[in-house]
Design a protein around this nucleic acid. Structure first.
Lengths: 337, 337
DNA sequence: TTGAAAGCGCTAACAG
DNA sequence: CTGTTAGCGCTTTCAA
């Protein structure tokens, strides 16, 4: 005898009435309701949501796909998502791609089979993306996070503008010889946009942009990548824009170990605004993204789509902030050129 | 016409046969199977898991409840969980309590309604815990993470022993006047156990343990809490054990700003082993917990319980490691006593 | 090797 | 205000 039936039997009513007590209590006479609820409580009746979900054809589940949880920006984002979903009693089915592009479509497929009501996701690159094609075909509400591209609903900062702001900050401090570093792992549309922002600012200032210096973040080869600078500091850039704070932190650590004083010998600016940037000495100057809010707003936007309140396919840009801290200074005079 | 029916109709077979193609393909004649699979593909048939779950009475969903995702130890743990679940094609329904004890039972209740196959969770305090009572009553497989207490299956380090090891490291460096600091937020059985470990080591060495210094981590009152030390460094402890790395990092930053040299004027040891501890100067000496592995092993253990392979109600202790880095040194001679 | 049919637990017409 | 009933999409006996 199934659960709702048991309660109904004990209460001497039909299962429909029991169901109503939980879903539309105002339709049940107060006295009946109280009796049923009392019995339900005492029997520890726990409505089986699977039954409801099958019948209603919605699950109250939101599928979330992020690159990783180990990176604090995504962990914070997930926290923001949960906060927003909670207000509507929705739950988060969380998956990560571990930066493997091949997993994106697979994971989405699984989430769709699970009949999630909607999807919140970050893909590696919106430019050529099976996952996005899949979403375009399917009629599932979704909102992108961190990615932003014409014709897809998203919540993010404007990476290109943010990167330009970072470089302008360096230019304003007097730098001209500015390089940009990015990690392979972050090989993504965001890296590309940030490099474009770098180019924008350099060109606008009349400087030739340097090619992007890509380093293998995990494999500790940053050192060899930077060796040619260390070998010839006189010709090394006076300022470096790192595509993420995690990378910036590693770069700073390495440079300091090699006797490079920051910011006197080299200025560094990061990107993300991790709180850990404040722990190091000197504290990391960086562009801050509102990760928690990106998650929260994306979730809110998804909820609005589920309501039918939001039907736009546009990018929502949140503000980034330049956190002026201590790793950027003026270039030493002898190295300006 | 529902999906599986549509495929069946197009393939000219019954829905049972279509179902078999996905679940027990060997029961279907190869030719039939190929035909059906081809049609399913072309129709983009996506089995509705809700139907399956209702019928099979299992969901392949694991409920996860953690205090927060913003703390990297839990984010890493969640990553470990996902990794283990993935091998069995299970998914993670993730919730956080935000350190609110009152939410624990509520969240578990919700997860149970969602018919999760099992639960992985960290509670604030196993000593008086509605959530644990609830689990004891219900017949749901679960494994605790970070918590460990007699009679409940868990995966964690041995906090008490780990703390003792931390203190012994300080004692071995020559310290006698050692204090312990913990944050309110972390008010938990783990803090208590770590304090006990501190007491164990102090008493064994013949020193009187100091009362636990509790600070309000978020409200930036660490400063006022430490003021009496700063006012009178001669009588301040020569070494401090911080209950978490996040706290240690803040304490170090504060002390340094106040001109206290670490480790010369004061040694600091943390707890958790966050990678961010390596970024600061001097690098943070700490006790490392295997967060990813805690998550992974707990998930594996849960899977074993679902199999019936593991039915024990005991604590599985993983090894902690003392990371000897640079924030612990010998006390300056004039302050030994 | 396949099909028919029952039913997982619940909700929502519809009827009373 | 309450009950009856028909499914939601799927799996799994049982029978053929």
């Amino acid at each position: 005898m199934s659960d709702i039936r048991r309660v109904a039997a004990l209460a001497g009513c039909s299962i429909a009435t029991v169901s109503r007590c939980f879903n539309e209590p105002h339709l049940v006479r107060e006295k009946t309701r109280e009796r049923i609820l009392a019995i339900a409580e005492q029997e520890r009746f726990r409505p089986n949501l699977i039954g409801r979900q099958l019948r209603r054809k919605q699950t109250g589940l939101v599928g979330v796909m992020l690159p990783s949880l180990t990176n604090p920006i995504f962990a914070d984002c997930a926290a923001g998502i949960e906060q927003a979903l909670e207000t509507q009693h929705k739950r988060m089915l969380l998956t990560t791609t571990q930066y493997e592009v091949g997993k994106e479509s697979q994971l989405i497929e699984i989430l769709l089979r699970q009949q999630v009501d909607g999807l919140l996701l970050t893909v590696a690159d919106t430019a050529h993306c099976d996952a996005l094609d899949l979403l375009a075909r399917e009629n599932v509400p979704y909102v992108l996070m961190y990615n932003h591209t014409e014709g897809f609903p998203s919540v993010s900062i404007d990476d290109r503008v943010a990167a330009r702001d970072a470089i302008e900050h360096l230019l304003n401090a007097g730098h001209q010889h500015i390089a940009m570093i990015a990690g392979y792992v972050a090989a993504s549309d965001r890296s590309r946009l940030r490099y474009q922002g770098y180019e924008d600012a350099m060109l606008a200032a009349g400087h030739k942009p340097l090619p992007l210096l890509e380093v293998d973040f995990d494999a500790r080869t940053i050192e060899t990548s930077l060796q040619h600078w260390l070998d010839n500091m006189a010709n090394a850039p006076t300022a470096v824009f790192c595509s993420t704070d995690l990378l910036a932190l590693e770069v700073i650590k390495l440079l300091r170990e090699r006797g490079v004083h920051i910011p006197r010998d080299m200025s560094i600016i990061g990107f993300d605004g991790l709180k850990y940037g404040q722990l190091i000495e000197p504290t990391l100057t960086t562009i801050s993204q509102p990760n928690h809010e990106i998650g929260r707003r994306a979730a809110e936007r998804l909820l609005a789509r589920l309501d039918g309140t939001d039907t736009h396919h546009d990018s929502l840009f949140l503000d980034h902030v330049l956190l002026e801290r201590k790793t950027v200074g003026a270039p030493s005079l002898d190295r300006r050129r």
